[in-house]
Computed example of a mutant assay.
Amino acid sequence: MCTRVQLVHEQAFRDVIRHKSAQQITYDCCNGWEREEPKSESCSKPICSAHCQNGGICTSPDTCSCAAGFTGKYCEHDINECNEEKPCDQTCINTVGSYFCKCREGFVLQADQQSCKKSDLKDDDAFEARDLENEIESGDNEDVSDRLQKLERSLANERVHTNELQKSLQATYNVVDTLKSRLSTIVSVTSF
């Protein structure tokens, strides 16, 4: 028996990969920070692990800056302004993120939306003192003390404003006197 060798040609393909070395700078953000946009070079956007609530804004890692009336790590707690600040003369009603004041019967809420004035009195500065006297007799001493402190602060502020106004008026009078003097000098010089 004889053996034969045959030469066969077939098409063959092979993948050629050419590697090019290129330099690319990449930036890693510090913990708690990320890029505003994927291609941005700076890491200026803070990351809060929980969403800031009630209008709060994430201002640094895991720290929310809360809108007025809210507190907490993620602005999740409503501030009870009625207990914290005691802003109202008579009745304070806390709401979510704010508060409002009401007056008892026979009183009218003033333009500052905090003070109450007896509705039957006209230009009477003693209305609040008489109202406090009634509360002292009824035994509500804690509220009375807070209201007295508020009245004292209000009177002190009014005194400061009055003193500032007097100083401003005096300075104005001095300027007017100086101008009058200069004017009379100019008039006397020009008349010769």
Results as ranks from 00 to 15, higher is better:
S168Y: 11
T185M: 10
E164M: 11
Q11W: 11
Q110H: 06
G69A: 09
A68Q: 14
A126D: 07
E135P: 00
A22G: 02
D15S: 03
N80L: 06
H77G: 03
C103I: 04
Q24P: 00
R182A: 08
N134I: 07
G55D: 11
C43R: 06
A67T: 09
I186F: 15
P87Y: 04
M1R: 13
F13S: 08
F107E: 02
G32F: 04
G97Y: 00
K45I: 06
R147W: 01
R18F: 04
D140E: 11
D123L: 07
D143C: 01
C64Q: 02
R4G: 02
I47S: 00
D140G: 00
P38M: 08
Q24K: 08
N54I: 11
D125N: 13
T3G: 04
S188I: 01
C75S: 02
R14S: 08
E76H: 08
Q90G: 05
S40I: 01
T172C: 10
R153T: 14
I186P: 00
T3D: 07
K39C: 02
V5I: 10
Q53M: 06
K118M: 08
K150D: 10
L148D: 03
I93E: 07
A12R: 13
A126P: 00
F192K: 15
C116P: 04
C82F: 07
